[in-house]
Design a protein around this nucleic acid. Structure first.
Lengths: 327, 327
DNA sequence: GTGAAAGCGCTAACAA
DNA sequence: TTGTTAGCGCTTTCAC
């Protein structure tokens, strides 16, 4: 049960510990016959280098962390889980290990320098970032930009996503297009809202009349808001919801009001989460390549930590309209 | 950027490193005035103990790992993410840090003893378990049982969940109840299938006639299978799907066949995932308290690692039928 | 190509 | 209550 050490291996192989160390970190610097002897001894003793001792000696942990920095969000949030999956893939590729936590939980376990880099997804706070930088931990942002900090970050092309939605709806002949905005991440809600205004303006459409409704972040709240929106005298013919959950609320409201989808109302969501294909009609949505965002962020950071490349400052990941039967 | 060490603090505070160490691990053993001096010095130097050096000296890492051991599953899987959330909470509570990975990814980064314990969710393999045990890492299973190993594990009460579904449907007057089983986790699919047979038998109902259909694990496959099942001459009046995704497929199929829900067909899912309330009608499902399962597993393990309690061998978490409008 | 030895920052006997 | 000191297991100069 107790593990063998580099010392045991060196004795059994009849070489120094330095040689064993070299064999396990850079075998090319050791004569081949010596290498074999060492490998053999290691095998017999079932030796695996201790990551901790290595980290101690090298002052490098080969670990990174992924922190979800959105109030109330956890790994259960499909969006953050998607990014996480991408980060996990790259961690595997570069043989780094991955600590995962929410911002809140991380703050509760204050210790020093256990990671070489950190990926902050969502509304990262300045003080956390400063603390990481003080410790010499590399910081990378995902789905967020922080004015005043010159940090590498990966974001999705929100403007283009919304533009694609509006363009498509206009092509389909819609002109009374409403938006249902919700209290999701402030940065994201803001971007999509501004993009909506811009896209409508491009087409010379009014945003005041069918209007922009605001609701909370749950289905029920969305349904309530949509009931009001759709119950007005001259209702919109299409609703763009700021994410898929809220779009599901709009669909429910429409059904309660006896509207047929998509004939009486077109509904579009955002994120292209797994629920889209489970809904009936299936929800048209903007695919955000979460996993790719995570991969870009982690890949960029790990390349940089390995000294392979300098770090790209801004990576914008394209999005894509997934047209389904809800329009 | 370079961090100060225990040595810097000891000099500034005019005490030995041992004292500083004590202040940060067990302050009660140090005179109060000395404590203050040390804290002050630490504050000035912005000192935080290095987790790595500590792990090195104590041969204890204060880290645990959560591994998803289901082929193809990732953290994106709501079920495993739910368990993960529970594990995260306990990790926070006990001030442990958490490494998260899939089994496959973990195997790719073979290093030794970086964790004090590991939680394996899903179809854990024997060789992995043996390797952990050899390294002296405590192993805990979630949602799985492995014959031949006497390991602590946390499972949900699958039999009771299925029984509640069937009881409820029978009370509602259904007797032609079909099951849609899918190629999800073998252990789970098997348990629910056997539970279905048992529950039907209890009520003296036939399982051969409306039948048990098998499909893959995606909605489309479920829809196909359900189309066939419901298109038969004497179709079931209720379908119990082995999970919510497949249930959504059943709902789609019913609609395509012009059936009204829930009047012409009752549909019940399993897991009570987030999609249930987004569907229309909302899906009745069996709530599996994933987060609680994660909490039980991690809590149990961490109590045990901290020497507070011996480990409970088997924890069964109750489930609960969530009745919604799909029945 | 290989070995000797000094760390990396902390903990835990043992002494005082 | 506090200090001294020997590790924990590995890496990395610097010699040979």
């Amino acid at each position: 049960m107790s593990n063998s050490t580099i010392y045991d291996v060196s004795r059994l192989a009849g070489v120094s510990t330095a040689t064993v160390s070299r064999v396990f970190s850079d075998p090319k610097r050791v004569k081949e016959s010596t290498c074999s002897k060492v490998y053999e001894a290691a095998k017999i003793l079932n030796y695996h280098p201790s990551a901790i001792a290595r980290a101690m000696a090298k002052q490098k942990t080969d670990k990174i962390a992924y922190l979800i920095c959105k109030k109330g969000a956890t790994i259960l949030d499909e969006f953050y889980a998607g990014i996480c999956e991408g980060v996990m893939r790259q961690a595997k590729k570069y043989k780094y290990q991955l600590l995962i936590s929410t911002e809140e939980e991380w703050r509760a376990t204050e210790q020093s320098k256990q990671i070489d880099g950190v990926i902050l997804a969502g509304d990262a706070q300045a003080d956390l970032i400063l603390e990481f930088q003080r410790q010499g931990v590399m910081v990378m942002l995902v789905n967020h930009r922080l004015p005043g900090f010159d940090l590498p970050c990966v974001i999705a092309d929100e403007y283009d996503g919304v533009r694609q939605v509006i363009n498509f709806l206009v092509e389909k002949g819609h002109s009374r297009i409403a938006m249902l905005d919700g209290r999701i991440s402030p940065y994201i809600a803001g971007e999509r809202y501004r993009a909506f205004l811009a896209a409508m303006k491009e087409h010379g459409l009014s945003v005041d009349d069918p209007g922009v409704m605001m609701c909370d972040k749950d289905v029920d709240s969305a349904m309530q808001a949509a009931m009001e929106l759709l119950g007005r005298p001259d209702p919109p013919t299409a609703v763009f919801a700021v994410n898929d959950v809220l779009a599901a609320g709009v669909m429910k409201a429409a059904r309660r009001l006896g509207m047929r989808l998509p004939d009486d109302l077109a509904v579009v969501g955002y994120d292209d989460s797994s629920v889209c294909s489970l809904l009936d009609p299936e929800l048209t949505s903007v695919r955000v390549h979460c996993r790719q965002m995570g991969e870009e962020a982690a890949g960029n950071m790990l390349e940089c930590l390995s000294g392979e490349k300098p770090c790209r400052q801004l990576t914008t990941v394209p999005v894509e309209l997934r047209i389904r039967t809800s329009v």
